[in-house]
Amino acid sequence: MTGKLMDLLRYGCSMAAAVGGRMLALNRGMGRWALFFADGLRHIFTWPWQGDKILQQIYFIGYKSMPIVLLTSAFTGMVLGLQGYYTLVKFGSEGMLGAAVALSIIREMGPVFTAIMVVARAGSAMAAEIGVMRISEQIDALETMDILPVRYLFSPRLAAALVSIPLLTAIFDVVGILGGYVTGSLLLGISPGTYFARVESSVELHDVFGGFLKAANFAIMVVTICCYHGFYTHLRSDGFGARGVGMSTTSAVVTSCVVVLIADYILTSFLI
């Protein structure tokens, strides 16, 4: 009896130790993440200003992501128009389609889908590139040259994302509303005047501001998470070398997407 009790106690203790270890590791990771972000943010403003690198990253994150954002926004707007029409028509309110599409896109889908598209296209590439630099000692080489790796690798990407993602969100919003117009008006016969009048009357500055606030927050989160995972590839316990870079890239993409959705809920709770 005593032996069984001791076994149970030992099992309980080892479980508690495992959970405690996990929590401590999570805590350390969060602390390192916060310091990484603070350091990167600070170095955006330190002299000499890295304008050329920021422009290069705006080109990579912003301009090169435009085709995928245009495509997803057009089809998101079109499918919203389609679904919205057949839902609203049941209540005889199909005239409200413009308002439904515009508010859904500006408040929620624009910032969230844009952030997820940037994660998929640019965030994964950042994590992989920085991860390869870590395992091939290129980041150590920067340190030996007295070049601050966080400033050189992360700060320009952070600044570029803060510019690019809100602008991409704006493009997503406009194209998405036009997509809703294509299905609602051109295919299903709602008057274009009614569609755009509802868009104009329902959308307030508060909605647009909320959407951009979300976009800026998502920009910070996704770029910091993706660069962080690449930068600390060497600290992973579940994979080394090329496998470690692969795992870091996967973690960066999955974590970014999950964090975007959680943050979206929290921000919406405050903005609504």
Binding site: S136, E137, Q138, D140, A141, T144, M145, D146, I147, Y152
Partner: peptide
């Protein structure tokens, strides 16, 4: 200056850019 065992050259930069990097950044 440090010369690494595996050279640790920046693979997305050309030879010229690799050599110029410490001069440019500092």
């Amino acid at each position: 200056s440090y010369m690494f065992q595996n050279s640790a050259l920046f693979d997305s930069l050309t030879v010229f850019e690799n050599i110029a990097l410490p001069l440019k950044e500092r």
